[in-house]
Structures are given as structure tokens and as C-alpha cells.
Design a protein around this nucleic acid. Sequence first.
DNA 1: TTTATGATTGTTATA
DNA 2: TATAACAATCATAAA
Length: 168
Amino acid sequence: MKPNSRSRGVTRQETKEALKPVEDRKVGKRKVAPKAEKRQTKKEKKAKKDPNKPKRPPSAFFVFLEEFRKTFKKENPNIKAVSAVGKAGGEKWKSLTDAEKAPYEAKAAKRKVEYGKLMDAYNKKQDSSADEGDEGSEKSASEIHDDEESVQEAEDEETGDDEDEDDD
DNA sequence: TTTATGATTGTTATA
DNA sequence: TATAACAATCATAAA
């Protein structure tokens, strides 16, 4: 369609409005003013050498989506469109209460913590390979390895303390 | 063949 | 402070 288009920026806006009128989401403000030439199209981070750059942690909504996708696909094996899951997931997400979203937010919070650690390691790596480039990152990999292990240990968490609120 | 797109919301980051 | 971009997914389409 629009290979040169700013990715799904403007395109999405048009499509969304065309398909269905945006209710009141913050849509339409995503890329209305492309002052900054976005990083990349989305994949291929060739812009910079970030072989280990930690991706942003999934939001509570995304954590919920991961599970929702399975359910959705299970009930709708015929539907394979990502947009379908997105819409359904978004609608369902809003249907959930804080209590139900709590576990997802908790998970997202963990991801965020891990992200912070990964960023720390990533920063070190960038510092080490500041002038080298792509190869220099390997040497400092050992240091980061230490941090990575720490991240994994962060898996020990107790959920289900006492969240049984349901104020409808 | 390969990459982008579509759709959702949230979160991070930058200006 | 506010806006912009990006996080997963997967089939399809275009270059």
C-alpha cells in the first residue's frame, strides 16, 4: 500500500477512522505531527548497532493480550488477523476491573524492573563499545552476563496476597 | 524474499 | 508537560 508511508502512523489513523469512528481514545495523536523522523519502521534496528538493546517491557495490556490471544484464537481459530485480536483484546481489557488487571499490572511491573536492569547492562555495553562499534560489544558481554543472571532471579514473587475487591 | 502493515493500550523516552 | 514512538502478533500484500 504505502511503503513510504510513515509506517502505520498516518495509515492507521485513516484506517481506524474510516473503519470506525474513534470514540475517545488518544488515537489520532500518535503521529499527527511527525516532527521527529521516527526511529525505524519498527523492525530492523539498523539505524544503530543495538544487538542487545532491551526492548520495552510489555504493558499490562500486552501481558493480558498474550493470554487473550490464545483464548481468542482458540475460540476463533478462523480469525488470524492481528487487528481482530487487538480490537477484541482492547474491548475486553476495558471490561476488566482493576482487580482483574492487577495481576497483569503486577507482571508488567516485573518486566519493567527487569527492563531497568537490562538497560543498566545495555548502558555499560554501549559505553564499552562506544568507539569500537559492533564487535566491541562482545568483550563486555561477560560483565552483562552477571546482570542478566540477577534478572532471572527476580522471578521469585508472591502474588495473590489479598486482592479480592470487586466493586461493581 | 523480505519487509511493512494492521489494531489494541500502555509505557517509556525524548523534546 | 506533552507528544511520539514502540512493545507482540501473524497473515497478507507489495516491492
